[in-house]
Design a binder for these strands. Structure first.
Length: 412
DNA sequence: TCTGGGGTCCTAGGACCC
DNA sequence: TCTGGGGTCCTAGGACCC
């Protein structure tokens, strides 16, 4: 029998903002952007929630519900910093810690009794350690599976601890609405409602075969979840360190829909460069490039292309993304959002000839140097990066014989 | 009300190979 | 010559999470 903790920070983004600006305390606060911006609520304070404001709600709606709320853009760097602090603290309590997102984590506390005492005592100590060292509140769920621990932390909010005793998992879940099960969203909830299933207990009573018939493999997982088991890919057994990313993406919604081909293409190029940069930071190479296009009426298409070999170079990703855009954008139709993603990530580049390898190595170093320039002077220096690429091409063309002899790293 | 950005996982059809 | 099945890759779309 395992002992799993799920630690979930309370109103994380808002709470971090309050640390830096205590005048926000006690007020309805919305993190996400200006109230008239195109965007959604990233986090709402408990006071703001009293007005019906919720995460993922359009900012304009939130503003209508509570015009005197304080709207802030937010500070992602600060959230990352605090997330790392929390991770450090968690690692003092267990060697098996897994950050599930920026503000929540699973701990395997099995066999830590001699060190930290029984589960409730350990949970209290952990809660107190986080509060003292970060000034932030969290809620903790304790149970024999990830699933039940996660639901328990949600039930414990705000600022509480809930331990579901081994053997009582199904009893704990039974009265809850099916939407409380992680992985059951609006669509599945609606489908279950149509079958007359409203509570987890209703679900648990059903025959597995019936669920599999209607929901496929997902139905089987659902049957397990209703009984408190870690079923399905969402909850793999071991709790451990994070795996490398499977995809990297950047997207942008325009303040106003755009039809200008040049502006749109420039955006595609910028997004592709940002993706390439992240790949270099991770030390990964991508084989597949995806373009995402959202039109004014919100219809959204994605188009992708898989290359012969993996790359992490701006030029390659920009070229592929731009081609996808030119091929698939319906000219003259206003665009709301553009996105570029990379997948099929691997550690090594595909096999190359020696000459290609040298050429690519020079490019890679030049681009890394450009990344450093951007770090120092900000994203506006991005033009410098592309200008350098142009310069490189010209020179290589004018005087190809000169390139290999000179120090390869100098051209950054 | 008018819908972000960054991810993961699943499904399903078609191509291609054995 | 016709028929088949399984496995894997690619592509597109969608549900879901924070």
């Amino acid at each position: 029998m395992r002992t799993i903790f799920h630690v979930d920070m309370d109103a994380f983004f808002v709470s971090v903002e309050e640390l830096f600006d205590p005048s926000l305390r006690g007020k309805p606060v919305v993190v996400g952007g200006r109230p008239d911006a195109r965007g959604v609520v990233a986090a709402a304070s408990y006071e703001a929630r009293k007005y019906g404001i919720r995460s993922a709600m359009p900012l304009r709606t939130a503003w209508r519900l509570c015009p005197h709320a304080v709207f802030v853009e937010g500070h992602p760097e600060r959230y990352r910093e605090y997330s790392e602090k929390i991770h450090e603290i968690l690692c003092e309590f267990s060697p098996k810690v897994e950050m599930a997102s920026i503000d929540e984590a699973y701990l395997d506390m099995t066999g830590t009794e001699r060190l930290f005492g029984p589960p409730m005592k350990a949970a209290h100590n952990l809660h107190e350690a986080i509060r003292q060292r970060t000034g932030l509140n969290c809620s903790i769920g304790v149970a024999s599976s990830r699933l039940v621990a996660k639901v328990a932390s949600d039930q414990a909010k705000p600022n509480g601890i809930l331990w579901v005793l081994p053997g009582l998992e199904a009893q704990f879940l039974a009265p809850l609405e099916v939407g409380k099960i992680p992985g059951v969203g609006k669509v599945t909830e609606q489908r279950l409602h149509e079958l007359g299933i409203r509570r987890v207990g209703d679900l648990a009573r059903l025959d597995e075969g019936f669920l599999e018939e209607r929901f496929g493999r997902w139905g089987l997982a659902l049957a397990g979840k209703a009984r408190g088991l870690d079923a399905g890919a969402w909850f793999d057994e071991e709790i451990g360190e994070e795996a490398p990313p499977k995809s990297v993406s950047h997207e942008h919604t325009f303040e106003q829909d755009l039809v200008d081909a040049q502006l749109l293409e420039a955006t595609v190029a910028r997004l592709a460069s940002m993706v390439a940069r992240r790949l270099r930071e991770y030390g990964l190479y991508a084989r597949t490039v995806h373009l995402k296009l959202r039109y004014r009426d919100f219809t959204t298409i994605t188009r992708s292309h898989t290359m012969d070999r993996a790359t992490q170079l701006d030029a390659d990703l920009v070229e592929e993304a731009r081609r996808l855009f030119r091929t698939h954008w319906k000219r003259g139709v206003p665009v709301r959002l553009l996105g570029v993603a990379a997948s099929g990530l691997q550690i090594q580049e595909g096999q190359l000839s020696l000459l290609d390898q040298e050429r690519r190595e020079r490019w890679r170093r030049a681009l890394e140097a450009a990344d450093r320039v951007r770090d120092r002077f900000g994203e506006s220096a991005i033009e410098l990066g592309s200008a350098m690429e142009g310069l490189y091409r010209e020179r290589a063309h004018e005087n190809p014989a000169r390139r290999p002899g000179r120090g390869a790293g100098k051209h950054g």
